[in-house]
Write a protein that binds this DNA or RNA. Structure first.
Length: 108
DNA sequence: CGCGTTTGACCTGCGC
DNA sequence: GCGCAGGTCAAACGCG
């Protein structure tokens, strides 16, 4: 089910130029960040309790983000198709870890 | 050298 | 209408 989003062309208005300036501002906003030795004593990480759902859909998944919700104890990992460019898979996988038991087998 | 992984910031949607 | 939580992206670092 490949539903391609049609890129709505915006009308030639002064806002177009402004959009470019805004884009530049946004890019500049995300200043370069340097990863310090914060996780020096950390292990591989999430693999300890979360395994990459390689064949869950037939494609490989690449983790593109991780967010801690609920303040703490709940970590949600976000996966995206590694070969999305080749498969056209524009879907994302969200694996939420629980504080206690509850293996990530019941992926949506 | 390229790709995957990790982290922090920003934006959007929903709830109050 | 504003605030908070959730979700997405981009850059840097490490490993193959």
């Amino acid at each position: 089910m490949i539903v391609k989003a049609e890129p709505q062309l915006s009308p030639p208005s002064p806002a177009f130029a402004d959009s470019q300036a805004t884009a530049t501002t946004i890019t500049a906003r995300r200043a370069k960040k340097r990863r310090s030795s914060a996780m020096e004593g950390q292990k591989s990480s999430w693999v300890d309790f979360t395994n990459v759902p390689y064949e869950d859909d037939g494609y490989e998944w690449r983790k593109y983000g991780e967010k801690k919700i609920n303040g703490t104890s709940y970590t949600r990992s976000y996966f995206r198709c590694t070969y999305k460019d080749d498969t056209g898979c524009l879907a994302t996988k969200h694996v939420q870890q629980k504080d206690s038991s509850d293996p990530p087998s019941h992926l949506q």
